[in-house]
């Protein structure tokens, strides 16, 4: 902006102007930001992932591998549901004599914490990733339809999203779990469906409007671009345009939100467990370990802190990775 009062922070927008002038011959009308992103993406692509990103990836890979191996029984773990009565409330790294092999101690019932945490990782990851896949697929499709077609389709879908978003997520999830359990009970006999499936569906439905809104907003801006008009002019059908022209541009935003979504779902599963509608004990999940043992926070804090720390690091890694994905994919704007 003209001289006065401005200009002390000569940062990105200024840089973009220089980049425009020096790196992008041929275009008279200013597209500064775009040029700059070209420069940034150029350097971004060459730049290696930071240490933080590698730590985050390493943590997530480790957790996933351990969860899978534990589930396959490939790890020398104790039975997560067996009570070692002598060892109830045993702290972590206890001396050998009293509690052989309980590396992370035991819970109030004397069950081995390490085994419960690693078995529990499976349930936690399954529920949170499953829920986000449900949200990703349905939210993505609905958001894409709303953003691409606009008009009445958009009005109706956005209204539905807003209604769902206006209900507090936990209450909505609670209601959905109750409803789904009820209907599963009717059709599936006394045993009912796997509670994990019900959780995936409930948390998935909660995340649909979130992912739907993000997808819609992104699809809306990309659908206004002239290459979409050009595809229409060539006679491409809407499905082809959405899949080939719009989706690849919307996907980065969706992916980064989905990674954050996994973290949110993992915490939500924990919250539901505390409220008593999470993964059903005795099957462990990080959330229900906290939920069922919460009364022992005073005398045996390790029972709560161990799963809480796992959730903390996993959520942190997912958040961090979500940011990295967005930063690396989003700046990939076309630029001349």
């Amino acid at each position: 902006m003209p001289g006065p009062g401005e200009g002390t922070e000569a940062t990105t927008s200024d840089l973009s102007r220089f980049a425009e002038d020096t790196l992008s011959p041929g275009l008279a009308v200013g597209q500064g930001q775009l040029y700059m992103t070209a420069v940034m993406s150029e350097t971004g692509r060459r730049r290696r992932l930071g240490v933080g990103a590698w730590i985050a990836i390493g943590w997530l890979v480790l957790i996933v591998i351990l969860a899978v191996l534990a589930q396959l029984g490939a790890l020398p773990l104790k039975d997560p549901n067996r009570s070692y009565a002598m060892c109830a409330r045993l702290g972590p790294f206890a001396k050998e004599g009293t509690a052989p092999g309980h590396l992370l101690g035991c819970d109030t019932n004397g069950r081995d914490m390490l085994a419960r945490l690693l078995y529990g990782a499976w349930a936690s990851l399954l529920v949170s990733i499953g829920a986000v896949i449900v949200g990703f697929v349905f939210g993505g499709v609905l958001g894409m339809l709303a953003g691409y077609f606009g008009g009445k389709v958009d009005t109706v879908l956005t209204a539905v999203f807003n209604v769902f978003l206006s209900i507090p997520a936990v209450i909505l999830a609670l209601a959905l779990v109750a409803f789904l359990q009820g209907s599963a009970g009717e059709t599936g006999g006394s045993s009912g469906a796997d509670p994990k499936i019900i959780l995936i569906l409930a948390l998935g439905i909660v995340s649909i409007p979130l992912l739907g809104r993000i997808t819609r907003a992104s699809a809306l801006t990309w659908s206004e671009r002239e290459f979409v008009l050009s595809a229409k002019a060539q006679g491409a059908k809407p499905l082809r345009i959405m899949v080939r022209e719009v989706l690849p541009n919307v996907l980065p935003a969706m992916l980064s939100i989905a990674l954050l979504g996994v973290a949110v779902a993992m915490v939500a599963e924990g919250t539901l467990s505390i409220l008593g509608v999470g993964v059903k004990p005795p099957t462990p999940s990080w959330g229900n370990i906290i939920g069922s043992q919460r009364s022992s926070l005073q005398e045996s804090p390790h029972i709560i802190f161990e799963p809480a720390l796992l959730i903390f690091f996993t959520v942190l890694s997912l958040n961090f990775l979500g940011d990295v994905v967005r930063a690396r994919l989003d700046v990939r704007e076309s630029s001349v």
Binding site: F18, E20, D21
Partner: peptide
């Protein structure tokens, strides 16, 4: 564009 004229002014 690319001649450096904007950078000169700045």
């Amino acid at each position: 564009s690319g001649s450096g004229k904007t950078v000169l002014a700045r």
